[in-house]
Every structure is written in structure tokens, then in C-alpha cells.
Design a protein around this nucleic acid. Structure first.
Length: 305
DNA sequence: AGCCAGGCGGTCA
DNA sequence: TGACCGCATGGC
């Protein structure tokens, strides 16, 4: 049992916000399957610490929850307006999680045009069918070889819909070594994104999720239907779409993005951005930690009412 | 019954 | 480039 004291980590927000799919809350404990292990975690209110029950090394747990991220600094750097500030205040302690890249890739390929409960169900079925049983009722996420070699009828039982073929072909590329995740860590955000999008079934949104949640690219800003809605609602005014992104904060933004295209400084840039342009806007507006901004906005929007 | 869900790939103008 | 469509499945 590990004890982490004085950490800005809210398990409820972090594990419920929709970035991970293999955690469930059971009374006071969060129970999840991570890298082939069952992990239990809960807050101890009295001592204001996070307790983690796991046979994995303590350093792994700290890395998984990204405890090395300087959350106050990050949140301060994305605190650009009253909308994001509301989300930051309401869900303070939400941290990005450092997922295993292979599992993250398949999970978000499965997430296309699906609700979160449906995604969780698909991953559960895949794990039960092709993973290893850890404890009673808990199954590891299947490795690439298992999915690459899966027979068609078994895979079809997992009800992945039109994603079935994509998943198996991606698994074959990973199993063959034709696709290597290690290379992505060496690339910058844009190059790694292009590389991921060479895989059938990975577009801009899925690539951004993989980069943000498993490849340490916090300058990634995934635009899905929810983010599209929240940006259209709160950020449609000209004041958010003018030139020069950085307002305050001593963090220099090194994310180079060309939004212009035509017209230069003309107004009306905000009219009906497509998903691609909205991603570019998000990266420029929120800066190098825009991935955190995206996640706070996403969760806040999903929890409205 | 019809629409939406952490979209993508293809086509057509 | 922009708009539209089909793609399986499940929840409301």
C-alpha cells in the first residue's frame, strides 16, 4: 500500500473524466486494470492523502498519475478566460493519466462514434476474450499478437462494428514491429501525429488522444463532438479569435500554428471552424499545455446539469 | 422511431 | 477545401 501526501490529485475527476476506460468506482475505492495489474486507489480525507494498493512499483504509480506534472503552473498557464477558469476551479485536481500506448491506441480507435459506456463494454469484451485472467473477474488488456492472430468469429463476438477490421490490421502492424511506439516519443507533436495517421482508423482526433494520453504530447488538443460544442458555445466571439495568443503568464508558447491562411488580420475568423481549424485554434489559444485545457473543458461540458 | 455517441475514409462538386 | 455518406452498435 502506497501513500501519496500533498498531491493535487482528485481521483474522482481524474478517473471519471473519460480519458480512461478500465476504472470503476466501488464504494470509496477506485478499482482499475493497468498494465496487467489490478490497482485500487482511494482518498484518505483525514490525512489528505491518496492511498494506492498495487504490486506495481511506487514509481510506476507516480508516473501513471503524472504526479511530476506541476499542476498549479500548468493550470495557471491555461487560465485564459472565465470559462476555463470555472472548469479549473470546479474540477481542480483532474490530472492527465499516462496510459500504455498500445492499449490507448486501440481504446481510442474503438471510441469513434461511440458513447463512453459502449467503449468500456467493447474493451471489457476484448479483454475477457483475448486477455489473461489476473484475479477472479479481472482480465488484462490483450497484447498486439493476441488481436493480430484472433480468429474472425471470436473478434466479431466483441461487437466492435465497422471498427473490427481496423483493429486487427493495426494489431498486426504493431505485432510485426512495422509500427513502433518508441519512435513517437522521439518525434515532435506534428511528426508523431502524421505517423499515427498512417494507420487506417486513426484520424486527427484519435491521433491527438493517443498523443495526449500516452505519448506525453500535452500540446495536443483533440476535437470531438463535445469539445466542438463547448468551443462553439463559449468561444464564438471575436475576442477569442484575434491574433497573438499569449496574454499573460511567463510561459512562452512554442507551438507554431498557422491559422491565417487568408485575409491576415481580418475579422470573422471565428465563423464555423471545422475540426481541424478548431484544433489549431485550441493549441494556439491555450498554449503548450492545451491538452489539459481540453480535458477540463471536455469534462466540464459533459458534466453540465 | 429516430438521434447521438471522445470519427474515419471515400466521393463529388 | 467543404459537404455529405456509410459504417455497426448501444443508450435514450
Amino acid at each position: 500500500m502506497y501513500s501519496f501526501s500533498d498531491v493535487d490529485l482528485n481521483l474522482d475527476h481524474t478517473l471519471d473524466c473519460g480519458q480512461v476506460f478500465r476504472w470503476e468506482r466501488e464504494d470509496d475505492w477506485w478499482v482499475g486494470v493497468v498494465n496487467g495489474n489490478v490497482i485500487r486507489a482511494r482518498h484518505d480525507i483525514e490525512s489528505s492523502t491518496v492511498l494506492v494498493d498495487s504490486s506495481l512499483p511506487r514509481e510506476f504509480i507516480a508516473s501513471y498519475f503524472r504526479l511530476e506534472d506541476n499542476l498549479p503552473l500548468i493550470l495557471d498557464s491555461i487560465d485564459k478566460d472565465r470559462y476555463i477558469r470555472e472548469a479549473i476551479q470546479r474540477y481542480h485536481g483532474l490530472r492527465l493519466i499516462r496510459q500504455e500506448p498500445w492499449e490507448c491506441m486501440i481504446s481510442y480507435m474503438l471510441a469513434t462514434a461511440s458513447s463512453i459506456p459502449t467503449i468500456k463494454m467493447r474493451i471489457l469484451r476484448l479483454s475477457r476474450m483475448f486477455g489473461e485472467e489476473i484475479n477472479e473477474g479481472f482480465y488484462s488488456f490483450p497484447d498486439a499478437t493476441s488481436l493480430a492472430d484472433a480468429c474472425e468469429s471470436d473478434l466479431c463476438e466483441c461487437k466492435l462494428g465497422f471498427r473490427t477490421g481496423r483493429i486487427q490490421r493495426a494489431a498486426q502492424q504493431v505485432a510485426d514491429g512495422e509500427f513502433c511506439f518508441d519512435e513517437l516519443f522521439e518525434m515532435d507533436y506534428h511528426d508523431a501525429r502524421v505517423r499515427l495517421m498512417e494507420i487506417e482508423g486513426i484520424g486527427e482526433k484519435v491521433a491527438d488522444c493517443i498523443l495526449l494520453f500516452s505519448i506525453d504530447k500535452m500540446e495536443s488538443f483533440p476535437v470531438d463532438t463535445h469539445v466542438r460544442q463547448v468551443v462553439e458555445k463559449y468561444y464564438s466571439g471575436d475576442e477569442y479569435f484575434g491574433g497573438g495568443g499569449s496574454v499573460s503568464v511567463g510561459v512562452s508558447v512554442s507551438v507554431s500554428v498557422s491559422v491565417g491562411g487568408g485575409g491576415g488580420g481580418g475579422g470573422g475568423v471565428n465563423s464555423k471552424l471545422n475540426n481541424h481549424k478548431m484544433g489549431e485554434w485550441g493549441r494556439r489559444y491555450f498554449g503548450e499545455y492545451c491538452g489539459y485545457a481540453q480535458e477540463y473543458l471536455y469534462y466540464c461540458w459533459r458534466m453540465r446539469e
